[in-house]
Design a protein around this nucleic acid. Structure first.
Lengths: 225, 225
DNA sequence: TCAAAAGTGTTAAGTTTACACCCATGA
DNA sequence: TCATGGGTGTAAACTTAACACTTTTGA
């Protein structure tokens, strides 16, 4: 190791996770009601710090896993947040990531231990520091990405009905979609496959269950919802 | 100051600038042929380090000004780059920003002193570290932004012809555009205003000079090229 | 038998693309 | 007078948006 850079200051590098989930036809965020300092008692994103020998991306995965127990989760970087006084507890440059998780699969005990809760994204409480801004940026980014790449499926169970898929996209876009136009688009992309299974929980008649076919997607690279 | 965070390591936080310019109908980047360590003799982006009491955004502005002498330049964050070994000179988490500058206006002496040169973006030499990846991400981001927000004008003089504007957008998109369709779009947005000045340098007949009208833009918020 | 969600095509409106000629001027 | 870039409109192709009824079945 050399010391070309040693005249410069060093900083804590934080991670903050915007964790999206989908339930009851609405997007939710997994938020912490902080029972630790600083800002005890207030709501915040799950966070942590980058460690020696750990990449920033890996730190984000670790922080997410610490809360949810989940691995191999879809994550995308939102950006670096570096205002001098963004964290009154000390100078921290934080890198925000959003994650898309299936709300059926996280580790409930870990979440409970962190005092974390799923909060409807349209009824968010005030958040500490610049976490509100991180959430806004993450929503914009996620919306754009979800419209052109098949990342939304990370928020659904492996098998889902077309009605569920539509209501997910309505939640992401924040507006109602036309059922026939939506299904027409689905039919045109051949990356969403009908299975022979039927979901009877949502209706008397029952709805066909579909799954996302990643191989078919990788062939066509076509996606637009 | 407290020490809630003091069990965590600290890191150098770097800045790297992807500096776009437009000349000879092509996009260029202002790159350094490094006459300093590490990676002396190789090509790199202009960089620097975040200092105590300085926000990351302010550091980016400062680093840009150190090279170009320019202030009030359009900049947008590309993201944080945090691989453990991205910089063989030491562990640095770097935040990349792109900047759009008018190639007529920078401080030539400063640029010369840094051994920096405008390089055609389609003929880039190999760059050190992960700078190539930063450039790719910046290009994608800039292209998307330029198509929906009037940021391209930062690359042009205050007065420009429609032919210049078209050739700028052709360079940004990397494909030719239809002259009549392009001008139709311009005419529909009322944020680009004809002046009574004529540019005679590009043709015998002379072309009308236009300017961007930010007030008109802010009223309509419409932009699409 | 009826309430509740599933499933299914067509048409009009709007947007995007393709395309060719005259104009003004300086050399 | 002619070579050079400046300036202008229309029609076809395509994409998007609007819209309503029949089916199935458990309660």
């Amino acid at each position: 190791m050399n010391n070309y850079y040693s005249s410069n200051p060093r900083f804590y590098v934080g991670i903050d996770c915007i964790i999206f989930g989908f339930s009851d036809d609405e997007l939710h965020l997994l938020l912490l009601k902080r029972n630790f300092e600083p800002a005890r008692g207030e709501w915040s994103l799950m966070g942590g710090f980058v460690q020696e020998g750990e990449s920033v991306d890996d730190a984000a995965k670790r922080v997410l896993a610490e809360l949810t127990g989940l691995d191999h989760v879809y994550m995308e970087q939102v950006g670096a947040f570096g205002d001098v006084h963004r964290d009154p507890g000390g100078r921290v440059v934080s890198v925000a990531y959003y994650a898309l998780v299936n709300v059926k699969e996280y580790d409930r005990e870990l979440v409970q231990r962190h005092n974390a809760f799923w909060v409807n994204i349209n009824e968010l409480p005030p958040l500490i520091f610049d976490h509100q801004e991180m959430v806004s940026q993450a929503r914009v980014l996620m919306k754009r990405k979800a419209s052109t790449e098949p990342i939304g499926f990370n928020l659904l169970p492996k098998l889902f009905t077309l009605t569920q898929l539509q209501s997910l996209y309505e939640a992401i876009y924040g507006e109602p979609l036309d059922k026939r136009n939506f299904r027409k688009r689905i039919a045109e992309m051949n990356c969403i496959e009908k299975t022979d299974k039927i979901d009877k929980t949502g209706s008397k008649r029952g709805a066909a269950l579909y799954c996302f076919n990643d191989n078919a997607y990788r062939k066509t690279q076509k996606f637009k919802l």
